[in-house]
Design a protein around this nucleic acid. Structure first.
Length: 120
DNA sequence: AACTTGACGAGGG
DNA sequence: CCCCTCGCCAAGT
């Protein structure tokens, strides 16, 4: 299993490309969907190389609802700004509400702790 | 080959 | 909630 493998990356892109504007997914969520051979870390590596591909990489964030790139792109948080332009609200600590913005691909049954709240 | 570093995340204190 | 540790695994030195 190698991140350099085109087919390996393509499986990740296929999912990310389905995330609609204004919605997000976490690295771990994508990893658990793809299963064997995929972990949150490897998804991060794939996304790192996704810049040149036709993929809305900004819609993939960490499980805390924050952008892991916040400390990489200075002085401004590019990824967060891109998402804010799509309508995603981030609090003063750089976190958004995953219950509200998390996207679930077709056919994927969310785990109990991932299900959006029935009561707003 | 050994060791360090992350676009990560769950669990415990 | 925040902080820390540990498991994870590919890449870079």
């Amino acid at each position: 299993m190698n991140v350099d493998d085109k087919n390996y990356r393509e499986k990740v892109y296929r999912i990310v490309r389905e995330i609609p504007r204004g919605k997000v997914m976490t690295y771990g969520q994508i990893a658990s969907i793809l299963g064997e051979g995929y972990t949150a870390r490897t998804i991060g590596y794939v996304m790192h190389a996704a810049e040149t591909e036709n993929v809305p990489w900004q819609r993939v964030i960490n499980s805390q609802g924050a952008c892991s790139t916040s400390k990489l792109f200075l002085p401004y948080n590019v990824q967060q700004k891109m998402l804010e332009d799509e309508g995603v609200f981030f609090d003063e600590k750089g976190r958004c509400d995953l219950e509200k913005y998390r996207w679930f691909p077709e056919g994927y049954e969310p785990e109990a702790d991932e299900q959006p709240s029935l009561f707003e």
